[in-house]
């Protein structure tokens, strides 16, 4: 099933990991028109501990909606890294918030990083770190187009915060394009 793209976004409760997963899934399912399923992690540990959002995208119907080996793993906390990284193999593209996650040794062939939380703080609201991250992911992976992702962000964030979130998205996106200049091998 080569056409199936599995994405896991994880972090701690309150970082907006679940919303990020929703926005990504919605961008693919509604604005790009692919088949996409988004499932969030439920349970007491979603409030404070490690939480995760899983998105599976495909050109065909997603029959098995669960992640077996993510193509893309986005990690925003150390606890989440320790908990979820072992389920990925070497081909997984790992993206981390570099201030919050220390990546283990030479385990990964493909790693990209961004100080998403710090950038969000600089924008005035730490809460938009998830949108900074989505901007970055859009730039470096093209899993959905910029326009598709922007539409999904606009449709999902609280009313009155659209402008701030767009700035967060743009800053993450610009950071991603900049990174790509030095990492041309990334897709």
């Amino acid at each position: 099933m080569a056409d199936k793209f599995e994405i896991r976004i994880c972090g701690f409760g309150g970082q907006g990991v679940i919303l990020a997963g929703f926005i990504l899934g919605q961008a693919a399912a509604i604005f790009k028109g692919q088949d996409a399923v988004f499932i969030q992690d439920y349970g007491p540990e979603a409030r404070g501990g490690a939480c995760r959002a899983d998105v599976v995208i495909s050109d065909q119907r997603v029959l098995y909606p669960y992640i077996t080996n993510p193509s893309l793993l986005i990690v925003m906390s150390q606890v989440a890294y320790d908990k979820f990284s072992s389920q990925s193999d070497n081909d997984t593209l790992l993206i981390v918030d570099e201030d919050l996650v220390e990546v283990g040794a030479a385990r990964w062939k493909r790693v990209l990083s961004i100080p998403a939380t710090r950038m969000a703080e600089e924008l005035g609201r730490v809460a938009v770190a998830n949108i900074v991250m989505l901007g970055f992911v859009t730039a470096v992976t093209r899993v959905v187009s910029v326009e598709e992702m922007k539409q999904s962000v606009q449709a999902s964030v609280p009313k009155g915060t659209e402008e701030l979130n767009m700035r967060a998205f743009e800053s993450g996106y610009a950071y991603g394009l900049e990174k790509l200049q030095f990492r041309p091998e990334q897709e």
């Binding site: 899934g25 399912a29 509604i30 399923v37 988004f38 499932i39 969030q40 439920y42 909606p65």
Partner: peptide, 9 residues
């Protein structure tokens, strides 16, 4: 739960 908590178009 598997279907109730799954998001899709």
């Amino acid at each position: 739960a598997a279907v109730g908590h799954m998001y899709e178009k």
